[in-house]
């Protein structure tokens, strides 16, 4: 198992320490999972369906308790707005227009409409939806809804952005486009991102660290560093490096899945 240092090397934003999670129905979703997320890291959580990626992400966000182990925040517990979360579905309020949806995190913090106007516009500009503030979610395409959801996560200027397979439901062209946009934003702002995906290509293209997870119980099987230079673009997608990294990640993923099958056979 390769030890990979955090890319930026300037401390961790958050660490999972020996975290286990058992649901009340007895499912052991995570077992002894440890993971450091460094400042400015773009970490991908890659694993087969049901291996506990969402569970891990929700635990980092504080949306679920751990059964054992802790989530450690070296700079102190996150405050309101320190965490941005993008769900697998856009999760917008259908009764509210784009502006009101993006305003929501700030609104819950007591910010009035007039004070947030600039912040909301800025967030919408970032995701390329500057002119759509007045549109309702039903008037938007799937990709546009996802962008709104990302703008909403960005509007509080979070310390860490957690994304749970945000583009999984989109077609490949839109997904590539949003991948590029996300990457450009990250290159410009160097946020800390944890990005859940089950696409090997997506994880290689975007992140500087790939955390491969194994299933039942979910745990970290392997970590792969990816120091391909930024900015990355179509050139990177067609490069040798990219193909090589994809093969490595894919092998790691298969190894993790085989490990699970052999285990299951042993216990059966």
């Amino acid at each position: 198992m390769a030890e990979v240092k955090t890319a930026q090397g300037n401390g961790n934003v958050v660490s999972l320490r020996h975290v286990s999670k058992r649901f009340s129905n007895g499912t052991l979703a995570l077992q002894d999972m440890s993971l450091d997320i460094g400042k400015g890291d773009f970490v991908s959580l890659l694993g087969p369906s049901g291996c506990g990626k969402s569970t891990a992400l929700r635990i980092i966000a504080g949306l679920g308790d751990t059964t054992e182990g802790q989530v450690h925040w070296p700079d102190g517990k996150p405050e309101r707005g320190d965490i941005g979360f993008v769900f697998q579905e856009p999760t917008l309020m259908p009764w509210a227009n784009v502006f009101e949806n993006v305003w929501l995190p700030r609104r819950l913090d007591g910010a009035s409409k007039s004070t947030v106007r600039d912040e909301v516009s800025e967030a919408l500009e970032m995701v390329g939806l500057g002119g759509f503030a007045a549109a309702y979610p039903r008037e938007l395409s799937g990709g546009m809804k996802m962008r709104v959801s990302i703008a909403r996560a960005l509007v509080t200027k979070p310390k860490i952005l957690l994304m749970d397979e945000p583009f999984a439901a989109l077609d490949e062209i839109t997904r590539f486009k949003l991948n590029d946009d996300l990457l450009h934003l990250w290159e410009a702002h160097h946020w800390t991102v944890v990005f859940v995906t089950h696409s090997v290509f997506e994880s290689v293209y975007l992140s500087n660290r790939i955390v491969v997870m194994a299933a039942r119980p979910g745990r970290v099987a392997q970590q792969l560093g990816n120091d391909a230079p930024h900015p990355r673009g179509d050139g990177f997608r067609t490069s040798e490096d990219y193909a090589h990294l994809c093969r490595n990640a894919s092998d790691a993923l298969h190894a993790a899945m085989d490990e699970h099958t052999t285990r299951a056979e042993v216990t059966a």
Partner: peptide, 26 residues
């Protein structure tokens, strides 16, 4: 929506805020 509830929880919404901005419209 369950995820929207989580979102409200994430941003530390009070009961009253959740009721007003989420549950009543829904």
């Amino acid at each position: 929506d369950h995820n929207l509830r989580n979102l409200f929880q994430l941003y530390g919404a009070s009961r009253w805020q959740t009721l007003w901005h989420l549950q009543l419209p829904a």
